[in-house]
Design a protein around this nucleic acid. Structure first.
Lengths: 233, 233
DNA sequence: AAATAAGGATGTTATGAAGCATATAATAGA
DNA sequence: TCTATTATATGCTTCATAACATCCTTATTT
């Protein structure tokens, strides 16, 4: 049965929850729905690769996508994660450049592909859409600038603590304060910009300092205020 | 005579060279010119500060502006420099946040202030303007992402070489390959994300390796291909 | 022009973090 | 279920770079 090709559910094709599309007219929204294509993607799938030409952007309706750049000898630098309600691939599309990042599914995902033509149609016909889009990019730019400052000025220890707190803010926790997103130590290292061993060591330290608890890849927060102090925030 | 208040010249109030405004109608351009305010700023002047509320964005018609964030114990992180033809302060304005950077004049400048109202008017009435604006932000976002990868993965030596090459691409050279922009070693350090002493040492090394020549703050490029190799590009 | 401050150069030392080696544990594929 | 592969853990070593101290030089200010 596992080989049966599943179709996206209603929830997974529904874009009405996206802030970005809130100000569309009924006609525009209909058109968007008509022209979009939704698909399911298994963990590990590459959505697009660095250097490829994009034909549209994607709306994430389920799962988690890792966006990263490939640096020196193949080392990944994770730029961000995209989850439900967020869009990916729009940057390269808008600036009409080849993709400068790779997008990989890390939690089984559902994505809706919106063709470039549709994007352009919306930009041309609805200033509120453009305005919203501008705000999304501007916010991401601020985050990038903040990150540059952190990475340039903070220690690995501080950055790791900060990354953990960021994950806590942006991803689901279960009722026991355990992060539901599952990342390898290497992925954490690729966010922080350090070596895998350093992350392993520091996580153990955080654990013995009773800031977090570790069970495999699951991270449970025990003392957020103390972790915030470690992050130097 | 030095206390005489100079008015901006015609060239310094002329926005017709800006790509961003190329697609405005005559009426829109007239309105822009009517609502803008141009002024001259001496080196050292702060245009806006982190945390302040902005009332508009600025078009740089002369000089160089340093955009930076203040990190741990006041250490500056330089985000970028803006020169003639570029705009500043638009990011915070568009996302309706308080300024997250400070802008300081490092070469006597002329700026035209464009009120938020005018920006909104243009966004609402001219989709090509919005589209152009989107492209500007998207391009800056790519640069920020590239920079994150560099700073996270490259050595200080590589980053310094790269920064020098970036300056070479983006700022004027005289006929002897000497950079006209004048930066202190500390400012270079604040771009690269390192200590001032490290920049001093590495610049001397580059000099003895015959990659550059130094005379005070003036940097002359002797061997760009070799410098590119050092930058690991 | 003298005074004061700011920037630059260099040696020395300290240390955070990377790199390597190796062992164990966990996960996924056949 | 067994095996192969990948991830995690930990010790040890090395190295790049930060931090500190001091001296020298170049700008700014009065």
């Amino acid at each position: 049965m596992r080989s049966a090709i599943k179709r996206p559910s209603d929830e997974e094709t529904n874009l009405s929850g996206f802030q970005l599309f809130k100000k569309l007219t009924e006609e525009e929204f209909t058109r968007l729905n008509y022209e979009k294509t939704c698909s399911l993607y298994k963990k590990g799938t590459i959505i697009y690769r660095e250097g490829s030409r994009l034909t549209g952007f994607f709306c994430v309706t389920r799962g988690i996508i890792k966006i990263f750049k490939t640096g020196i000898d193949g080392k990944e630098q994770i730029i961000r994660f995209a989850k439900k309600g967020e869009i990916i691939a729009y940057r390269s599309l808008l600036s009409q450049e080849l993709a400068c990042t790779t997008a990989k599914v890390i939690d089984d995902a559902a994505l809706c592909h919106v063709p470039y033509q549709t994007l352009l149609y919306l930009i041309q016909n609805n200033w509120q859409f453009s305005h919203h889009m501008l705000q999304i990019v501007c916010r991401e730019l601020r985050e990038a600038n903040d990150y540059i400052t952190d990475i340039a000025q903070k220690t690995v220890r501080e950055r790791l603590a900060e990354v953990l707190l960021l994950l806590k803010e942006n991803f689901e926790l279960d009722n026991q304060n355990t992060l539901q997103i599952s990342l390898t130590r290497e992925e954490l290292a690729n966010m922080v910009g350090t070596a895998t061993e350093s992350v392993i060591r520091l996580l153990s330290e955080f654990k013995s300092d009773k800031l977090i608890e570790l069970q495999g890849r699951k991270i449970k927060f025990l003392d957020t205020p103390a972790l915030t102090r470690v992050a130097n925030l």
